[in-house]
Design a protein around this nucleic acid. Structure first.
Length: 291
DNA sequence: CAATAGCCCTGGTGGC
DNA sequence: TGCCACCAGGGCTATT
């Protein structure tokens, strides 16, 4: 099952992860040491389709000669703050990768956008399925990005309270799995961690939002914070052995309770893990532990 | 407004 | 062995 893909150039590119909040946060932390204070001297656009809200040449023009002053994360979005009160917003979607590469390192496979830094090093956006997006805009227009403007409170934020979630869920008739994937309700959760949070909370993914009791919502909030905190500590979930130039690698895959474990025994009771489809997404749970 | 279905996109996989 | 349909899913759009 574990297989390392070696391309002819010997670059290990088969790090397979779904970028949810913990993975995006891991990327952010890994990049900060390398790119803060660096000036972007040129931008190489190999796939213009990934650039949104401006024409590609305008995108390049707005970024060149800017200095990166900070990197923030909101949900699954990364925001590179630039010196001229502009922001580069990157969403990795399914297979987007942001890599720091030294000047002498060769081109990564699937490179779509390269930012050349004043040191000669590069910030690389690579993407197999090309669903990622990059946007640059003035800082005061950040709310023009709809997904950012409408995003709900995120895990580990004091704004994500049981009172808030209970109030939102009481009017919702969809299943809790689908509701937790809705970024407007909770920002940053994706398919892996929603399954994990529901497993830890002991809540069945098919339960309707308005059926959850206040006690269950409290348990769910606790589970969300626990799962995301641990996943960040473990530097995210990767599905193949992998390390990059920074030694950045996730280990949370060893801690998963249900995701990707269909048919394998529940770590608590031994019941084989079930897999169903909800909201078009694969959904994993223990039919004995989750009610 | 809320729920739901379809769409984008490509590499890996399973069936024949 | 080769071919091909199908699956993975985040976020957006269209529809009811």
């Amino acid at each position: 099952m574990v297989k390392i893909g070696l391309k002819p150039n010997n670059l290990i590119i088969e790090e397979k992860f779904m970028p949810e909040l913990p993975e995006v946060e891991t990327v952010r932390r890994g990049l900060i040491a390398h790119v803060i204070g660096r000036q972007i001297v040129s931008v190489e656009v190999k796939l213009a389709r990934l650039i949104t809200m401006t024409a590609p040449d305008e995108f390049v023009q707005l970024i060149v000669n800017e200095t990166i002053t900070d990197i923030e994360r909101r949900g699954k979005y990364l925001m590179f703050w630039l010196s001229g009160e502009k922001v580069l917003v990157v969403h990795l979607r399914m297979t987007g990768r942001l890599l720091f590469r030294r000047a002498e390192q060769e081109l990564d496979p699937y490179t779509k956008i390269q930012f050349h830094l004043d040191t000669g090093d590069r910030l690389v956006f690579a993407d197999v399925r090309t669903l990622g997006t990059l946007t640059v805009l003035p800082a005061q227009k950040l709310s023009n990005i709809h997904g950012l403007a409408t995003m709900g409170p995120e895990p580990l934020s004091p704004d994500l309270t049981a009172a808030y979630l209970l109030a939102v869920l009481k009017n919702r008739k969809s299943n809790i799995k689908t509701l937790l994937l809705n970024q407007q309700i909770v920002g940053g959760l994706g398919n892996i961690y929603v399954d994990e949070c529901l497993a830890l909370a002991g809540i069945h993914p098919e339960r309707l939002g308005n059926s959850l009791t206040s006690v269950e919502v409290e348990q769910l909030i606790t589970a969300i914070n626990t799962v995301i905190d641990e996943a960040i500590t473990n530097q995210g979930t990767t599905f193949r052995d992998y390390r990059d130039s920074d030694g950045r690698k996730g280990s949370h895959q060893h801690h998963l309770l249900v995701y990707g474990r269909k048919g394998e025994p529940c770590k608590h009771c031994g019941t084989p893990i079930s897999r169903i489809e909800l909201g078009g997404r694969g959904t994993h749970f223990c039919a004995n532990c989750q009610h």
